[in-house]
């Protein structure tokens, strides 16, 4: 039996320097670069993988974070089926932005699936965001929560596969 193929656009949202580009690089290229390079505009990557009987082509939109996202506007979110909303577990203010990004996404794409990510879990000694707090916010905003490390690769695949599964479930 031949596999069905679907293409979906997913976005990565979150404040600057939370590790969005590093998560995509880890997932798509399987590598990590310690050097921080700010993204302006958008960088689009593609990753194909099979889930059950479906070949899924994910078009991953890695968007500029923080003020720069506020400037580029919501047009970048058009057509997105899902989003990973990312915070940096070592910077509390990046969690405060979860509400903003969720509202922006749902304003443009009301049915888009969401997965919330606490990145940089490897920096345990610098961690300032409590797991209970971030879980409560994620629950309030209607999405599951995962902790990841783009540096070590911890749960990065799981985060995207979680997102992919939620996409398949909505087909």
């Amino acid at each position: 039996m031949s596999k069905r193929t679907i293409q979906k656009k997913v976005c990565l949202l979150g404040d600057f320097a939370v590790g969005k580009t590093s998560l995509v690089r880890r997932f798509v290229e399987g590598r990590f670069d310690d050097k921080y390079l700010s993204t302006i505009g958008v960088k689009i990557s593609r990753k194909s993988f099979t889930l059950e009987d479906t070949l899924l082509n994910l078009l991953i939109w890695d968007l500029a974070g923080g003020d720069d996202f506020r400037q580029i506007g919501n047009s970048y979110l058009r057509g997105a089926s899902a989003a990973l909303i990312v915070c940096d577990l070592t910077r509390h203010d990046t969690l405060d932005s979860f509400h903003y990004y969720t509202a922006q996404l749902h304003q443009t794409m009301p049915n888009a699936s969401l997965v919330f990510i606490g990145n940089k879990v490897d920096l345990a000694e610098q961690r300032v965001i409590d797991k209970n707090e971030i879980e409560a916010i994620s629950q309030e905003l209607g999405g599951p929560y995962l902790e990841t490390s783009a540096k070590t690769g911890f749960q990065v695949e799981s985060a995207f596969h979680f997102l992919a599964n939620s996409l398949l479930n909505t087909l």
């Binding site: 293409q7 656009k9 689009i44 078009l59 058009r78 057509g79 997105a80």
Partner: peptide, 14 residues
């Protein structure tokens, strides 16, 4: 266009 350029995948409705 969406086969030619990734940027337009998902943007057919737009």
């Amino acid at each position: 266009i969406s086969d030619l350029m990734w940027e337009f995948v998902g943007l057919e409705d737009t």
